[in-house]
Amino acid sequence: MLAESVWILTLVSLVLLSAVFLFVIANSGDERDYSEVQKKWYAIRSKWLLFLFVVGVIVTWATLSPYPITDQHAAADADTTVVKVVGHQWYWEIDNTEYSAGDTVEFHVTSGDVNHGFAIYDEEDRLLTQTQAMPDYVNKVRHTFDRPGAYRVLCMEYCGLAHHAMLAELTVR
């Protein structure tokens, strides 16, 4: 799962960061000539910068190809189910909520009043994908439902009093 990998990556990075800080704190006494320290540390910094740069290029390329967002201008192909979604304070109007396992559904999401966030959650309450529901605009998000089950739509953009209660069910057979 993406979220778990991200969580682990974050924790590991934080442990490494803490280790560096603790190392420096532990070695903050024992005064040395600054120019020597600078020479050594600046040499490491060049490598550190190069590392950050290379990682940046690789990560950028790897995360953007293929482009992770549904093409907004291409027409949905014949075997894609198009479903219209309108967010309202505080309910979802979804013109078809029953699909079959394996279906690719393209949700055309907008709002009848304020901004909402259209997010699909699986049975274990894991967020699968989302897009914003904004008045006057239609955001398209495509999702393939691999497994049958009861999915839920939650609101991910604060929309007032019952924001947290703005739920809908999607059934995949």
Binding site: V20, F21, V24, I25, N27, S28, G29, D30, E31, R32, Y34, V37, Q38, W41, Y42, R45, W48, L49, L52, G56
Partner: peptide, 21 residues
């Protein structure tokens, strides 16, 4: 993130290391 990680925070660590702070 890079100016923070490679200049400011890094610079702070450099200045503290073996400084007798």
């Amino acid at each position: 993130g890079i100016p923070v990680l490679a200049i400011t925070a890094y610079g702070a660590l450099t200045i503290v290391y073996r400084s007798g702070i």
